[in-house]
Nucleic acid binder design. Sequence first.
RNA 1: GCCCAGGUGGUGGAAUUGGUAGACACGCAGGUCUCAGAAGCCUGUGCCUCACAGCGUGCGGGUUCGAGUCCCGCCUUGGGCACCA
Length: 859
Amino acid sequence: MATHCTDYDFLQIEPHWQTFWADNRLFAAGPDRSKPKYYTLDMFPYPSGAGLHLGHCENYAITDIMARYKRARGFNVLYPIGWDAFGLPTENYAVKTGRAPADVTRENIATFTRQLKTIGVSYDFSREVNTTDPAYFRWTQWIWLQLFKRGLAYVEDKPVWWCPALGTVLANEEVIDGKSEVGGHPVERRPLRQWVLRITAYADRLLDGLQGLDWPDSTKRMQAAWIGRSEGSDVEFDLESLPGQRLRVFTTRVDTIYGATYMVIAPEHALAEALTTPEQCAAVQAYVKTAASKSDLERTELAKEKTGVFTGSHAINPATGQRIPVWVADYVLASYGTGAIMAVPAHDERDYEFAQKFNLPCPQVIAPADGTPVELPYCDKGEAVRLVNSGECTGLTPAEAKTRLDARFAAEQRGRSTVQFKLRDWLFSRQRYWGEPFPIVWVDETDYRKAAAAGTLPLPAEPVTCVIDGQTRFALPLPESALPLELPDAPGYQPTGTGESPLAILTDWLEIWFDPATGAAVSATESKPGDRWVRGRRETNTMPQWAGSCWYYLRYTDPSNAEAVASPEALRYWGVPDIYVGGAEHAVLHLLYARFWHKVLFDLGVVPTDEPFPKLFHQGIILGEDGEKMSKSRGNVANPDDIINRYGADTLRLYLMFLGPLEAMKPWNSRGIEGVHRFLHKVWRECLDAEGKPNPKLSDHHTDSDELLRGLHETIRKVGDDIDNLRYNTAISQMMIFVNALQKEPQVNRSTMTSFLQVLAPFAPHMCEELWARLGRSGSVMLAPWPQYDAARLQTNQAKLVFQVNGKHRGDQLLPVDITQEDAVKAAADNPKVAAQLEGKTIRRVIFVPGKILNLVVG
RNA sequence: GCCCAGGUGGUGGAAUUGGUAGACACGCAGGUCUCAGAAGCCUGUGCCUCACAGCGUGCGGGUUCGAGUCCCGCCUUGGGCACCA
């Protein structure tokens, strides 16, 4: 079944075995539930027109080697692939060319698939999923409906990037330095109706869940920082000019309240206008207007110098009873906490800087317990500091003061201990065509009540409403049975020019008669089909690309199930990925969003566990030869197709894995690849002679030396360990060491060679299949059980003992491992170099680590 | 500014719990084979030195019989966050 080439002709060998694997369906995840399962997953690729790059190859080689190894170890392996195919690049291309996004997507997927097959990745292509397939996004919509039903989705006007010149809304990543990425046109913020998901309701669980995950620490830390849990207190300050109203602040340092000498509200704060006195009106209005016209980016970038305006009003510090001024300043963010702060300049850097600029008082209320004078601002807290000048709290530690003040303000009904998060709710809509449509119809209140009364729809406890053309509309979901809601055809896919999605001009699709019981719809231009039908307008937003990638790993367990996301049985057996490999660029968003959806599905009883990715690994970025990030403009891109044509996929895979630690960022080196290519040639020559027949040095009867067998067993052991621990580079180095030893042997037992081929096979699968067959082994090397190493073979009775004198290496000698210290010292003393160092000196101390080192301390 | 991870030959990198620094490979040099070349094979290759010795894991200190590894201070590269009260 092997090819007949005499040389290592990888261009012939590789396609041959790729066809063999596909024809024999060797990589399909099996139905046998008695076997232990292993689920390995790559991050969901976007099938771009540019095709596969080296980063993909690195990612997929890592998981492919793992998958092949685990199969050989007897696991039932699930190793799937699919396509995260909705999204902007395809839509932009469609707009430009007028071609249907679905057609473009299909072509891109075909290209990707072809390329994947040329690198020999052992995916189970029978489980391929595609987020743009209605049979798939039916369940994306279904999950979204569950979120909707549980009150986790709502609608809000939110500012988005709008480009007047392009007549369209842009994503954050399409805006660069305040200009559109395409064309460099100016962009502005414009409020548009958006769907928002209440991810903040899961903030605590998302944070706590991180603890048990086997993820890179840096990624866990990044997510924790993104969630940004912060414990503090809410306190309400009375307002002198607005009796009965209070200004609420959030502070993590309520213990410093005796030092709060002014307050600051964000320019967007609801009380900004009410608090402004007539004399200050012009100044405040001007300030608020300037702040509003700045983008978030400008506001933070220009943040070097603090700015602000006095409102003219005062609040009362509830601790001291003093009147303190209320300012407006944009260093306070409307979106965090309550949008207002109590400023304690003596103990907060930002407040200090502001107070210095505007000449506000800075009384110190925290001091080191030992009375050391300190410079302001002084931000220490903890056991070593005490409150000073703080009335009843003077002398307490900050922690004690917090307890006391929280209790006092709670009793006064003006405060409490509380927790804030940096995490914001998730803006979950795009004004775009190429995404999942929301299964929502906007209706008036009467129709909503009528439809709700039927009791069959997935409705939230509180209706979701919005105002369209001055009228309040209610969000009526499609019944689950009516899913999927497919995308209508849109001529040209052009932007509408109003900021709404291209769907908003497809009147027949948009304005409908709708049957809430069945989800059926007809154009509103037709006559009302029946009594229970209601007049509605479809939701025109579509879901962001994150939607489809939030749950795809579940679909792989049962990809064609028409009744559910996946069957409970499949979800129980396959569970979640045992290892998830992808780039660190998704450390926060994708991984956080998917965790959120998974927890909701867990609460719904759909999935049996509450975390989707127990083990995560990030492969490092492959840089160009110049050590810079690969990019077309730099001209430092190495193309996988070229490399495969020149060296073969096995060489490419092996070299990518040999380059360095998998997680490290490392530069490509086109000369270095020669090394692993030579290594594969060497393996070939050790197996076959010049005619392509088995090398005469291989025999079935030869007894290999203990040393060679120790090398073989050490290699089996190390390669297995290193694969388990994702240290492929040292596994390869061990295989090179073994082949170098093999090469020096005049005769080698054939089974030694075939055992070695088995451990090499996950890395260089095509060549190992070929050699396995040519050495007379039957079937696929992939089906042979992983060789066992014999621990007894690894032992030696001699080991090199290193001699040191005063910690310096002075020689070594092969000695029995169980040598006594006394004999070891004798052996050392016989060593001429050691003897020279001992000359005329006394041995003061002997450090003996058996089998390793003998250090003689002399003086 | 804050948090994190790195810094080892000409190059990529290796080094259980502190125990031979530089495995493996690239490159380079010499040799062998060849009419010649390619490929292969052999030898060498941290620095300094003819050699002995000495010096060497970003820099400066420290702990230790012994430090790439542990501790303190600094420099530097990369990543993340960035007025989050």
